[in-house]
Design a binder for these strands. Structure first.
Lengths: 145, 145
DNA sequence: ATTTTAATTTAGTATTGACTTAATTAGATT
DNA sequence: AATCTAATTAAGTCAATACTAAATTAAAAT
């Protein structure tokens, strides 16, 4: 998700408020600080974060700096979330873990659904005490491209 | 922004990855923990956050719990971001601070653009040392409904 | 009722992030 | 060049957050 950085940037209340303000108007750092009840330094740091993810473009005009919101970044993020919401559920057992290892035939033995699921999902989970860090990578290997 | 909580929830890398996995398949907590290289406790805590914002719905089936992603929440968030991107810039001087106090007529004196801007934006910013906490609320009042 | 199993919760630690003050920088103005 | 002004950065503090290990809970299975 190329827009993950944008997502993180606007997930903060202060930065989201900054974006909203700057969509409507052009405010200087002092004005933004007043409106949000913060110091100019705090506002400046947040503006830096927003610039770094490409959400704001600033340019100096005389003493003051003007910011423009890059609305395209917001639209791209929105589009990616729509795509995410449209991701198709993969075919396969709706049971636990969605593992395919067993399904691909590790043993020819016919197993009940329950047996299959247990092996498929958490073959070694049953014995909790045996679960060691080094075993983790060996446990529960699920195929995934 | 009613979906702010959803925005915050998925702004975390781990929770976003959980959502992506659960959109495609049904995994148990153990399987999720393996795939993300975390403990089951960590995964459980993240799943709780996602449930609390309404992004996941879980139900027990036998020993295992199944999770369904509430895609509608993702769509709503996407829609709000689209709306945000479409917010109209307000009419008014594109100069600093976007303040209207002066514009509404504090003095009848005709001022140059520069003079106007300076007063409008940061009337008291010029004398930095005088800026005290108690003065902040008096400074730079901008009209905003 | 007891045992097993998956998942959650508790408690603690380490890391991250948001804030402030003060110092500094980068222009603009004179 | 000197001064002024807006903004940024450095350094520090504190709160929030993400993790783990261990204990506990909530079912399911026997």
């Amino acid at each position: 998700m190329r827009t993950k950085a944008v997502l993180k940037a606007i997930a903060d209340d202060t930065r989201l408020n900054l974006v909203k303000l700057l969509l409507k108007h052009s405010y200087c750092v002092g004005a933004l600080a007043r409106r949000l009840g913060l110091t100019e330094a705090a506002v400046s740091q947040h503006l830096k974060v927003l610039r770094e993810v490409g959400l704001l473009h600033g340019e100096k005009r005389g003493y003051f700096r003007h910011y423009e919101v890059n609305r395209e970044k917001l639209r791209m993020l929105a589009a990616e979330l729509q795509e995410l919401a449209a991701v198709q559920r993969e075919a396969g057992p709706s049971e636990e873990g969605g593992c395919r290892l067993q399904k691909q035939g590790r043993g020819a033995t016919h197993k009940s659904q329950k047996e299959w699921v247990q092996e498929a999902c958490c073959a070694c989970h049953g014995v909790r005490a045996k679960r060691k860090e080094s075993e983790r990578d060996e446990h529960h290997k699920c195929e995934e491209s």
